[in-house]
Structures are given as C-alpha cells and as structure tokens.
Amino acid sequence: MDKGTNGKTILVLGGTSDIGRATARHFAARGWRIQLAGRDPEALQRDADDIASRSRVAVTVHAFDVLDSTAMAPFIDGLPLLPDIVVCVVGLHGNQARAQSDLDHATAILRSNFEGPALILGLFAEHFARRGSGMIVGVTSVAGDRGRASNYVYGSAKAGFSAYLSGLRNRLAKQDIHVITVKPGFVRTRMTDGMKLPGPLTAAPEEVASAIWRAADRKSDQIYVRRIWAVIMLGIRAIPEAIFKRLSI
C-alpha cells in the first residue's frame, strides 16, 4: 500500500504498549488513520503526536480500561467512527509466584488477559456483524498453548482468550468478519524487561507489527510471529502429561 491516507481506520487497544505503538506506527506509515486507546491519555497523546508527525495521518486518543466492563459500550459509542480493524494488545504478565497466594493479583492477571479482551472484542464483533464488515485481531500468547508451572495464571488466561478468538472466528466466518489470533512468542518489550530471552526466539515489537500487517493483508487465521514458535509449541503440546508434569520448561 502506498503512502497517503487510504481512508481506513485501525483501533489499537493498549496503545501505549510497545507492540501497540509499533502496530499503530506500521499501519499509519501505510496510510491508515489511527485510534489509540488505553488507560493513560497523556502517554497516549505522546504516541499520537509521534505517529501524526511521522505519517501525517489523523490520530485520535481514547480513554479505555479493559477492566471496566460497564464503560465498554459507551467507549465504542464514543469513538468518532467504528474502525475497520480493532487490534487488542492489552495484557498483564504479572508475577506467577505472587499470583499463587495473592488472589487480587491473580484476578487482575486473569481479567486483563482474558475477560477484558474477550468482552471488548465480543462487543466489537456485534458492531462489525451489524455493519457487515470489520476485522478483529487478538494478541494472545504461546503461553496459552500449554499451562506451565512458571506462568500458568497468565498462560491459562491467554488460553481462554485464544479459545474465545477461535470461537469468534468460527462464528463470524459466515458473515465475512475476520478474526486473527496472534501469538508473538518472546518479544523485547517493557513486559519482558529484565528477563533473559534467547535471541533467535525473541522478536522486536516492530516484527510483531509487521506480522500483524501481513496477517491482516492475507487474512490469516492464526499466526506465530516467528515460525520457529509453531514448531516449539507443537513439540511442547505433544509431550504426554505424565512426562510433562515432571519437566521444568
């Protein structure tokens, strides 16, 4: 696609996250109008200014909290226009050890990664179905492919979100509304800051952004940002539970 406005709009939920920011930039550079949504309007405005000065497309910012389900319907009604694509990159990694005994923390992880993203995308699905067009992109995680001791609170929430996306896709396929499941694998972001990540398995936020772009262009159903992750997770899923429970991976 060429530079210059193409008249289409993408909404990024979690606009100040590294992946959200990179995704917004990537689409803006290809002429898409941008709606950035997140909890911190001041931070969103910085990113909006950045995107607008780089790409000269219209960028609007919208307060949005994925944990506030009562505000979701008014949030969608308050958008200047219903976007062509909605991407949800909201997520909270949290701390597994803490989540094991701190129920509030566990709840925050479960709700931020599953309940909230599922509810808001479900609501968009209704609007898109009514309009007869639209695309939904959910950024979930390879952690949802199998529960592991080191991050199963986060992982199980992502598993729920992945299943939700799969069901939504199955339902909306008949109405030509497309749903994309994105599993980034390790990404160098604020969420993983300080973790030791293996280089060949670790993507930059920009890589996730261009993978989302490609997936939207090709209408892929489900993507792993780095292909190697599809192989790894195939292997991990294939290990029998009797053996898996004794492993630490």
Binding site: D18, R46, D47, D49, D50, S53, R54, R190
Partner: peptide
C-alpha cells in the same frame, strides 16, 4: 532506544 518518539516538527 525505545525512547524514539517524534515530539514536534
């Protein structure tokens, strides 16, 4: 390097 926003032009 993540501090890479254009602020004004």
């Amino acid at each position: 390097s993540a501090l890479d926003r254009v602020r004004a032009f």
